Amino acid sequence: MEILERDQTVRLETLMSLIETSESTIRRDLDELEAEGKLMRVHGGAELRQGLQDELTNQQKSVKNSHEKARIAEVACQMISKRDVVFIDAGTTTEFLIEKLHHLDVTVVTNSIHHAAALVDKGIKTIIIGGTVKLSTDASVGQMAVEQVNQLNLDKAFIGMNGIDNDFLTTPDLDEAAIKRAVIANSQQTFVLADASKLGQKAFVKVDTVDKVAIITEKCETAVLQELQKKTRVIEV
């Protein structure tokens, strides 16, 4: 719990090394702590349980599940065709997608100053959505941003999400939820990029129903993933 308070997340291998005990013992202890509501079990370890309105900063998110995010982004990149107009959401998983974009004749719309700068450096035609910048996630939000998104027609959109349960996509922030909702409504196809830690989670604000999007995530044996596969397209990496 001290490690989780400090780092927000911990892997099984780390605990096995620190505590010098078996994987089965660690798993059993983590299950007990989860039952007590002290943490949340995720693929390969555990993370600190967040409140419905809690949200990590981009800096904190960037160190979590980076290998899995990179694999998800690689598959997402394969969904993009030449001459597509795509939206790329602010966030750390979508940042990996920008790294994978090479020599594609595409136009990218983004609500992230950080993403826009990276895209321009790559020589990719970039349109940036304006509005109030949310400092913790580097996202342009607010009514101005929503109105700009509503003026666009997008071929594909790639967005992050804090929580995906059996029915809804959720995020902690009302303003970010409004942007994501507008993007889904104005895109022919929307892909949610989410590592396994987001599955089964529920945040404060409902963005949309899961059937409105395709979900690119890790292969994992969870009841939530099996339920999602009945309702929408799930691409496992």
Score class of each variant (00 low, 15 high):
T170S: 14
C220T: 15
D208F: 09
A185V: 08
E218L: 06
L193V: 06
A185N: 13
Q226G: 14
D208T: 00
V183Y: 07
T217W: 09
Q188H: 13
A223H: 07
I215F: 00
K219N: 15
A223R: 12
E221K: 09
I216H: 13
I184T: 02
N186V: 12
D175K: 12
K180T: 10
A223W: 11
K219H: 15
K202S: 11
K230W: 05
R181N: 01
L199I: 13
D195W: 13
L228Q: 05
Q229L: 04
A178S: 14
A194C: 10
P172F: 08
L193G: 06
A178D: 00
T209G: 06
V192M: 03
D173T: 11
L193T: 01
S197R: 15
K198S: 08
K230T: 11
L199Q: 10
S197P: 09
T190Q: 02
V224S: 14
A194H: 10
A203R: 08
T209W: 10
N186C: 06
T170Y: 11
K206M: 04
K230Q: 14
Q226T: 11
A214Y: 02
T190F: 01
K180H: 07
F191D: 02
N186K: 13
Q188F: 10
A203G: 12
T190D: 09
S187K: 00
I179A: 10
K212V: 05
D173R: 04
D167S: 12
K219G: 11
I179S: 08
V192S: 00
E218D: 15
V210H: 01
T170C: 09
Q201F: 14
T222G: 02
V213T: 02
T222V: 10
F204G: 05
L169W: 08
D211E: 12
K206I: 05
V192D: 07
T209D: 11
L169Q: 06
K230L: 06
K202W: 13
